[in-house]
Nucleic acid binder design. Sequence first.
DNA 1: TATGAATGAGAATTCATTCAT
DNA 2: CATGAATGAATTCTCATTCAT
Lengths: 196, 196, 196, 196
Amino acid sequence: MARQIDGKKKERIQDAAVVEIAHWGYYQTTVARIAKRAGVADGTIYLYFKNKEEILYSVFERAMGRFINEGRASLEKSTGAKEKLRNIVELHLTLVGEDRDQAIITQVELRHSLHFMDQLSRAQVGEYLEIIGKAVVQGQESGEFRADLDPVFAAKAIFGVLDEMATDWVLSRRNTRLESKTSAVFDFIWAGLRVC
Amino acid sequence: MARQIDGKKKERIQDAAVVEIAHWGYYQTTVARIAKRAGVADGTIYLYFKNKEEILYSVFERAMGRFINEGRASLEKSTGAKEKLRNIVELHLTLVGEDRDQAIITQVELRHSLHFMDQLSRAQVGEYLEIIGKAVVQGQESGEFRADLDPVFAAKAIFGVLDEMATDWVLSRRNTRLESKTSAVFDFIWAGLRVC
Amino acid sequence: MARQIDGKKKERIQDAAVVEIAHWGYYQTTVARIAKRAGVADGTIYLYFKNKEEILYSVFERAMGRFINEGRASLEKSTGAKEKLRNIVELHLTLVGEDRDQAIITQVELRHSLHFMDQLSRAQVGEYLEIIGKAVVQGQESGEFRADLDPVFAAKAIFGVLDEMATDWVLSRRNTRLESKTSAVFDFIWAGLRVC
Amino acid sequence: MARQIDGKKKERIQDAAVVEIAHWGYYQTTVARIAKRAGVADGTIYLYFKNKEEILYSVFERAMGRFINEGRASLEKSTGAKEKLRNIVELHLTLVGEDRDQAIITQVELRHSLHFMDQLSRAQVGEYLEIIGKAVVQGQESGEFRADLDPVFAAKAIFGVLDEMATDWVLSRRNTRLESKTSAVFDFIWAGLRVC
DNA sequence: TATGAATGAGAATTCATTCAT
DNA sequence: CATGAATGAATTCTCATTCAT
């Protein structure tokens, strides 16, 4: 049962960190403020995380984990490459759009952190790019997508479009739903991929 | 002539800041280290900049200024929309690829800073997006590009692709030339825009 | 029998403290580390000791107790003052040389602690000095030792020599046996005491 | 002139540290308290010392330096070995007796610190022991001192006596003058050394 | 008795900024 | 204009001690 409680407390700290970092940015966020929001003492943070950096790190991992896992699951559900790609686009925009604070971390703070802890983060982005790349390859093999496109390049281009939409949504604090862009985004990507 | 010398010193500080921030990130960069690299005293920095943030700010402005100015010039040179777009792609990748340190600022540090000084920076990105958007509109009016595309959306999508390529190049420390991606990038974008 | 077990646990904590403090010094030793080495929970420490200082305190007491008790016993065994003194020298060097960790506490950490808890510790050193002093007095009364020497001063001088040898042995991490110095030390002291 | 001022400020910090450490012990002394006593800001400390440990370190060096330098000078002044030794005894007790706070550092705090920074401190004690040892050797060569004594051992024994007197004086807060012990101490040592 | 998670006061250190020279 | 010593607020992290179980 202690385990249960621990798990809860660790998550509470992570949740608090997401809110604080989203609001203040990583460097302006103090451990004290995270602790206060999580409703624990400053020192308690250090029972669950080695240091401040580890908090950020774990928050990223948690978020990227969802993208990768749900991305994979989504691929298995659908069969056609076009459909798969549409699902990825929708999933990406939905997941980002679900939680603005988390999105700020992923779209804004993560970028910055890439700088000094790229090994992990970039590896995870790489994993995500691979998922997209696989869908592209499948589409090329089935003849749905043009074959003269490097799948690695295509994956990056697709990610770039998704990412800019997400960043734009995060920074323009409008109250639109990000998923509503799904069709337009998929349309643009699809135009770039289809055999014409 | 005093102005001349002053101007030089201000630029030296900015140049030093670019190198230091690219290497250490904004928050890990100390004013003292910038001063040392610029060959001036710590206090001298404050004769040219109100505070540390202003340095970062001015470095962004300088960089974005080049993108906007050269982007505009490029638009005027060419007449056809397709050609214009191709020039923008080439220009973007060339400018980013020219100076890796500066690129790190723009691609990595800028993102983070958008967070707390978005009003200006985003405005400048907006200005840049507008330049791209104008080329799209022209292409639609001339019938070169499909008309069923929101130009604002298209500009963002194009910027997203360019931006991901730039970020990828910055973070993967390979020694390739970024401009070499021009054709592939333009090809992808063009496929998404042309009347099919 | 519960007492028995408790007693064992208290001793285990003291033993662990000796090792840890000898290795890390008093201030660098954490209660948690002592607990871990003793194989008990952190909180358990406080069932046996009022606070961290008390642990150190009790470890000193235990060690000084042995010096005083064995010193006294030694005095009773031998009859002649010269012999008594020789026994004290040998005993001191043997006891110190028996356990390096304990010696580090006594020779190095004790000094530091004298500073803020001198009342007790110094009292115990005083007790030990008295034992030495009594041997001196006896020697003077029997005519074996010169009479023109203040016994209190002589005791301190003798203790000083013994102490420096012990400290030197502790700090120079050589593998010599400390007792091997007995003859040389006694010889020097004897020269200072005898009627010439 | 800046140099002059710096030198003064550094010394002021060292002096403040001596008083504070003597009163509170090294670990209970805070940098803030040293700064306050020295009349400088906390941060200023770090312009002159890399960290807290360096302060202690430099204070030791300064103190031991005096012992070594004045010890050497004293050796050169006198010619006979007996006289030299007497001078060392007097000098040692005088220097220690001059400044109780400084003496606390040397007699109490230094011991403790030997534990974790012995390389330097013990080296300096070693240098001091050598000075004593040389006087012993000279006395043996001239026939003043007995030849059957290991000079290294003799130096340690002498140092031990001096040291115990100093420690005893520091810890017993009586208002006696430490130099007044010179004759008694020298007498005891001399008895141990002379040809009998 | 025994546990060990939680606490929170406390300390070292950094660094943007100022200002006397 | 230029300097760089001095400042002191602010932040991370540690660890002795407590207390509910």
